[in-house]
Measured scan of single mutants.
Amino acid sequence: KKYKVVEVKENKDGTVELVVENENGEKKKITLSKEELDKLKAGDTVELK
């Protein structure tokens, strides 16, 4: 499934919390490390299994 990044929030521990949404409007929260996030920004599309 493809999800669009709608919100990006940095946590104090250096991880980043993303809120992503698919075309049905379903939202998910995922947490990434700073390194994983470096290639993402709001409006990008991510694929989740």
Rank of each mutant, 00 (worst) to 15 (best):
V20F: 07
E21F: 04
V5M: 02
I30S: 01
D38G: 15
V20Q: 00
K27E: 05
E23D: 08
L32D: 00
G43E: 05
E17H: 09
T31G: 03
E7P: 00
E26F: 09
K39N: 15
K41E: 13
E7D: 11
E10L: 07
E7Y: 05
T31L: 12
N11R: 06
T45C: 15
E23P: 05
E7G: 05
T45D: 15
A42R: 07
E23W: 06
K4Q: 08
V5H: 00
K2D: 08
K12N: 14
S33C: 15
E7T: 11
V16L: 08
K27H: 13
V19P: 00
V19I: 11
V5L: 04
E7C: 15
K12M: 10
K12T: 12
T31N: 08
E7I: 09
E26V: 09
G25F: 04
Y3K: 04
K4R: 08
D44A: 07
E26Q: 08
E35H: 13
T31E: 05
K27D: 02
K1F: 03
N11E: 05
E36Y: 14
V46P: 11
E36W: 15
G43L: 04
N24A: 14
V6D: 01
E36V: 08
N24D: 12
K41C: 06
D38S: 09
V6P: 00
D44E: 10
T31V: 11
K28Q: 13
S33Y: 08
V5I: 14
E23Y: 05
K49M: 08
E10M: 09
L48N: 12
K12F: 12
L32W: 08
K2P: 04
E17S: 08
D38A: 07
E26R: 05
D38L: 06
N24S: 13
K49H: 15
T45M: 07
K28C: 15
V6M: 07
D44M: 05
V19N: 03
N24G: 07
N22K: 03
V5A: 01
E47A: 01
E17I: 09
A42F: 06
L40W: 07
T31F: 11
E23Q: 11
E17W: 06
N11Y: 07
L18H: 00
K29D: 02
K12H: 13
D38H: 14
K41F: 05
V8T: 06
K39C: 11
G43P: 02
K49D: 15
K28I: 15
L18A: 08
V8H: 03
T31P: 04
E36T: 09
V20G: 00
D44Y: 01
E26W: 03
V19F: 06
L37D: 05
E21L: 10
L37N: 14
K34I: 12
Y3E: 04
E21V: 13
T31C: 14
V5W: 02
G43T: 04
Y3N: 06
V16P: 00
K4V: 14
K2V: 10
E35Y: 07
V6F: 03
K9L: 14
E10G: 04
V46L: 13
K39M: 06
D44H: 04
L37V: 12
S33M: 14
L40E: 01
D44V: 05
E47M: 02
N24C: 14
T45L: 14
K29W: 12
D44S: 07
G14A: 01
Y3V: 10
V19E: 05
A42V: 15
V16S: 05
E36D: 12
T45E: 15
E23I: 10
K9N: 12
K34F: 11
D38E: 12
I30Q: 01
T45K: 06
E10C: 14
G14K: 02
I30T: 01
E7V: 10
E23N: 05
G43A: 04
G14R: 02
K34T: 12
A42W: 03
V46D: 14
G25R: 04
D44T: 03
T45I: 10
K12I: 13
L40D: 01
T15P: 01
L40H: 09
E21M: 08
K39W: 06
D44R: 02
L18S: 00
V16R: 07
N22Q: 04
K28L: 15
E10W: 08
T15Q: 06
K41W: 07
V16E: 00
K39I: 10
V8A: 05
G25P: 00
E7S: 10
L37K: 15
V6S: 03
L48H: 12
K1I: 13
D44K: 04
E36K: 06
Y3H: 10
V16N: 02
E10R: 03
S33E: 11
T15C: 08
V19R: 03
L48G: 12
K28R: 13
I30V: 12
T31W: 13
K28D: 07
G43C: 10
S33W: 13
L18Y: 02
E21N: 01
D13N: 09
G14V: 00
V19M: 08
L40N: 04
V6T: 05
K1C: 15
K4H: 07
E17G: 06
T45R: 01
K39F: 07
K34M: 13
A42M: 11
K49L: 09
N24R: 11
K28N: 09
K9E: 03
L37F: 13
E21C: 08
Y3W: 09
K34D: 07
